[in-house]
C-alpha cells in the first residue's frame, strides 16, 4: 500500500533535484559547443542553436589525446580486474571471524589507512621497482583501496553464518565457499566497488604527473591537465589551443564524463536486481 501523495511528491522532488544536479553538466556541455564569442559574453542560450566544435577538434587533434584515451582505457580495465581480484580476496580474509591471526592481519591493514611515508619514499621505491615512466605504475601501486575492501567485507559479514556452516558440513573448500556463497550474494556491492575502481582509474591524475615522464603514457586527465595548465614561464605561446582556453576546459569535462555516462545505465540493472532467489537472509 503506497501512499499516493508521497509518490507524487517523490517524483516531483527528484525531478527538481535531477534538474539541479544536471545543471552544471549541462552548463559545461553548452560552454563547450557554443561559439567562443557567445561564451565570452556569458550569454548562454538554454538550447544551443549554433554549434561550434572547434574546441573538441583542438583537443583531439592538436592535443594528441588519442594515446591518452588508449592508456586510460587500458589502465581502467586491467586495473579494475586486478584490483577487484585482490580486494575481494582481502575482504574475504578479513570476514572470517574464526581465522587465527585475523586480528593481526586487520590491524596491519588498518594502520596503513592513516600512516603514510609520503611522496618521496614512494618515488624512490617505484624507481627501484622500475615503475617510473612505466604503464604498470597505474595499476600496481594502487591495487587495493582499503575503504573499498572494508565495504565489501561488511557485505560479506552480513551474510549469515548458517550458510557457511551448511556448506562446511557438506565439505566445501574455502575457495568454493568464497565463490559460491559470499561473492555471489554480495554481487551488487562488488559491482558497485568495481564501478568505483573503474571511475577512480578513469579520473587518475596525480600518478601520471608525479611518476610518468613520457607524454605518450599520460592518462586522460593528466593530458587534459597538461593542456589547460601549461605554464608559459619559459616564454612560449604554444599552439593555437591557448586561444580557446575556456572552451577547452569545458570540452575536457565532457570528454571525460561521456564514456562513464554511456556505460553506467547498463550497469544499473545489476545494482537493482537484488539478491538471487534461493538463499536465505535473516
Amino acid at each position: 500500500m503506497k501512499n499516493r501523495g508521497f509518490t507524487i511528491f517523490n517524483y516531483i522532488f527528484f525531478g527538481v533535484l535531477a534538474f539541479v544536479m544536471v545543471y552544471p553538466f549541462w552548463y559545461a556541455f553548452l560552454s563547450s559547443v557554443v561559439p567562443y564569442s557567445d561564451l565570452m559574453q556569458r550569454t548562454l542560450p538554454i538550447i544551443p542553436t549554433k554549434f561550434d566544435f572547434s574546441a573538441y577538434k583542438e583537443i583531439l587533434v592538436n592535443g594528441l589525446l588519442g594515446d591518452a584515451y588508449l592508456t586510460t582505457i587500458k589502465s581502467t580495465f586491467i586495473g579494475l580486474a586486478l584490483s577487484l581480484a585482490f580486494t575481494v580476496s582481502g575482504a574475504y580474509v578479513l570476514s572470517i571471524e574464526k581465522l587465527p591471526g585475523a586480528k593481526i592481519i586487520s590491524s596491519i591493514i588498518i594502520l596503513t589507512m592513516f600512516f603514510s611515508g609520503g611522496l618521496i619514499p614512494m618515488y624512490i621505491l617505484l624507481s627501484d621497482l622500475k615503475l617510473i615512466n612505466n604503464f604498470w605504475v597505474y595499476v600496481i601501486p594502487s591495487l587495493i583501496n582499503t575503504v573499498y575492501m572494508f565495504i565489501i567485507r561488511t557485505s560479506f559479514t552480513d551474510i549469515p553464518l548458517s550458510l557457511r556452516e551448511a556448506a562446511e558440513i557438506d565439505g566445501a573448500s574455502e575457495c568454493r565457499i568464497m565463490l559460491t556463497i559470499y561473492v555471489r550474494l554480495s554481487l551488487p556491492t562488488i559491482m558497485v566497488i568495481g564501478l568505483f575502481y573503474a571511475v577512480d582509474k578513469w579520473n587518475e591524475l596525480y600518478t601520471a604527473l608525479y611518476f610518468i615522464i613520457d607524454y605518450k603514457l599520460y592518462t586522460l586527465q593528466a593530458a587534459l591537465y597538461n593542456l589547460l595548465n601549461a605554464n608559459s614561464g619559459t616564454g612560449v605561446g604554444g599552439g593555437a589551443i591557448k586561444t580557446v582556453d575556456e572552451q577547452v576546459k569545458y570540452s575536457a569535462v565532457i570528454l571525460t564524463i561521456l564514456p562513464i555516462i554511456l556505460v553506467y545505465p547498463f550497469l544499473q540493472k545489476y545494482f537493482t536486481k537484488g539478491v538471487l532467489l534461493g538463499s536465505v537472509k535473516e
Binding site: F86, S89, G90, Y92, V93, I96, L99, P100, I105, I108, I109, T112, F115, S116, G117, G118, I120, P121, M122, I124, L125, I140, P141, L143, I144, S173, E174, C175, M178
Partner: peptide, 29 residues
Amino acid sequence: KYWFVYVLAAFVLGFYILFCYVPMYGILI
C-alpha cells in the same frame, strides 16, 4: 582448512607491506 585463505592473505599482505610499509620510513622526515 584455511590454506586457501592464507594464500590470499599472503598476496594481500604482500601488497600492503611492499607499497605501504616499505615507504613508511618517510615518517622519519
